[in-house]
Computed example of a mutant assay.
Amino acid sequence: MNKLNMANPIVIRSLDEIQFWSRIMKEHALFLSLGFTHDQKQLIAEAHYFINLFEQIEEKLTRFNANTDIHHIQAFNNEVYQAAVAIWGYKRKVLGLILRCEIQTQNNYPLLVDHVSREAAYFAKRLKDLNKGKLAPEPDTIIKENLFFLKIMADHAKFIGHLLDPSERKLVEQAREFSHDFDQLVFQAIDLDSMRPQSETVPILDQFLDQNRVSVASLRDFKKTARELIEACRIKSNIHPLLADHTFREAERFLEIIDLFDSHLSKTAKKK
């Protein structure tokens, strides 16, 4: 039997989560550091600390593979979990400083800081769940995870619209339309969540995923176009090229998760 087929799925999923989210956390720290004013040296230094911390995690990640003993992976998950919790605490501290008007920043507005802190909390929870052996999604997980990502996508649309130059009227309008679309999807997900457990049927969840997939794919394509235009300096904006790529990768991630959930529902339906 092929060794890869014998690999523990918890190991494979853990490495995948760490590879994706550690890069995201590192980039969050970079974006926050760029959004502070020059006199906020302590906050900038803390951001650089997290950039280095997650770079070290990325380096350690290269030492593991799908056949690594699960106990080593669990220990690594715990280490990365501590880093995720630490950067979450830093982000929430920054949010508090902003909301109490104790600091003024450039582009670190409250919703963005809250947004990146929610992603850190999500990453930490994923690692915790994996170390508990939770892999196959439960029906409530499907709803809650989609709700999380739908809010992330809605935020992205708002950020893009906010950071585009106002003269880019067509793109700004498109971003607003995506913001409205995803706000509606968020409300639908909240309604579905409030109907649990009765809403946790395969047909309803299947339709839920299909609807989300169409909207996420459309937003992903918009982000891809925006990224290419920004990289080619063909549009006017305050969007860092790395930020454009960052939001594109998160849309791609959401689509992958929708496909994973869809596959799980198909298997569940066949068993019945």
Rank of each mutant, 00 (worst) to 15 (best):
R227D: 12
I12M: 05
I239N: 06
L43Q: 15
N67Y: 05
K267G: 12
A84K: 10
S33K: 05
A175C: 03
K223I: 00
A121M: 02
L219C: 09
E252Q: 06
K41P: 01
R234A: 11
I98G: 01
I235W: 06
F159V: 01
S199P: 01
Q56D: 04
K132L: 10
N108W: 03
S266F: 15
E119A: 04
D183F: 11
A47Y: 02
Y109S: 13
V214N: 09
W21V: 08
M1S: 10
V116P: 00
N212R: 11
L171F: 02
A121P: 02
D155V: 06
S237R: 03
N67H: 15
K223G: 02
D193C: 11
A83H: 13
I12S: 10
A29V: 05
H48F: 13
I44Y: 09
G89E: 07
Q184M: 13
F149I: 09
L147N: 08
T201F: 05
L150C: 12
L219M: 13
Q82I: 13
V11Q: 01
D262K: 14
L163G: 11
D191K: 15
T247E: 08
S263Q: 14
L229M: 08
Q74T: 06
R227M: 03
H72T: 11
R196I: 07
K224I: 02
N78A: 13
E173S: 12
P166D: 10
R196T: 11
